[in-house]
Amino acid sequence: MARARSDSPPLFDLPVRPDFHMEAGLMREGHMPVAGLDEAGRGPLAGPVVAAAVILDKDRVPEGLDDSKRLTAEAREVLFRAIVETAVSVSVASLSASSIDGSDILRASLEAMRRAVAGLCTEPRFALADGRDIPPGLPCPARAVVKGDQRSQSIAAASIVAKVTRDRMMARAAFVAPHHGFEAHMGYATKRHRLAISEHGPVLRLHRMSFAPLRESLPD
């Protein structure tokens, strides 16, 4: 059986920065407005998974949009403000560590994306979702775009909004659990974080007990 053609282009074909090419093509086909979807926080041991949906104004696209992982924290904050000030609509949704434990991280991420789209004040006619999966239950057609935050400015904008929002949430969590250093590692499995878990234990409703190594600490 022939292998399905990947939506992801060869690495050397990726643009240096994401552009508005996919969105413009969809708009020419009558799919307007177009929303970009992305999430932050699939991998950490603690904290929520946060998704964002962004509909950019095609005439006011902020300069410098990129995959949030390729930007400094300072650049993300500047672009976050620019996105919120210029976009047609921005929406954010999150699912808690407890919700992730009750399901799994992929389902939780996709559900957060669905909720983010539902929260937009302008209903999109099409959605571009980062990754290989389309969130179920969207109110419009959608396309999964591998490395979408490096290819689509709408997805890149969503990645920035999701990342900045989640980082701010984790910084607030540091006030609840100051010994765990959430403001520094944002819940990821750094050496400092793993040591804090060993010394102080997991934090109720903040740590994902279904993730290794936390699940190994659960009583039989």
Rank of each mutant, 00 (worst) to 15 (best):
G25Y: 06
R28D: 15
R28S: 13
E29R: 15
H31N: 10
H31I: 00
V34M: 07
V34D: 11
V34S: 10
A35S: 14
L37Y: 04
L37G: 12
D38A: 10
D38Q: 12
D38S: 12
G41N: 08
R42Y: 02
P44M: 06
P44L: 08
P48Q: 02
V49P: 13
V50D: 12
A51F: 07
A51P: 09
A52V: 03
A52K: 04
A52H: 01
A53F: 01
A53H: 04
A53S: 05
I55Q: 13
I55F: 04
D57Y: 01
K58C: 05
D59V: 00
R60W: 00
R60S: 12
V61P: 01
E63S: 14
E63C: 02
E63Q: 13
L65C: 08
L65V: 11
D66C: 07
D67E: 06
D67Q: 05
K69H: 03
R70D: 09
R70H: 05
L71M: 13
L71F: 04
A73Q: 15
A75Q: 15
E77F: 00
V78I: 05
L79Y: 04
F80W: 12
F80C: 04
A82N: 11
I83N: 00
I83K: 00
V84D: 00
E85M: 03
E85Y: 00
T86K: 07
T86G: 04
T86Y: 00
T86H: 11
V90P: 08
S91E: 06
A93E: 09
A93F: 06
L95E: 13
S96R: 07
A97E: 10
S98K: 12
S99D: 14
S99Q: 15
S99Y: 02
I100L: 13
G102N: 15
G102R: 15
S103N: 13
I105K: 09
I105V: 15
L106D: 08
L106H: 05
L106S: 02
A108F: 02
S109N: 14
L110C: 14
L110S: 12
E111M: 14
R114Q: 10
R115M: 14
A116Q: 10
A116M: 03
V117N: 06
V117K: 07
A118E: 15
A118Q: 15
L120G: 11
P124Q: 08
R125Q: 14
F126I: 12
A127G: 02
A127Q: 06
L128V: 04
L128K: 06
A129I: 06
A129T: 10
D130H: 10
G131H: 03
R132F: 07
I134F: 03
P136K: 11
L138Q: 08
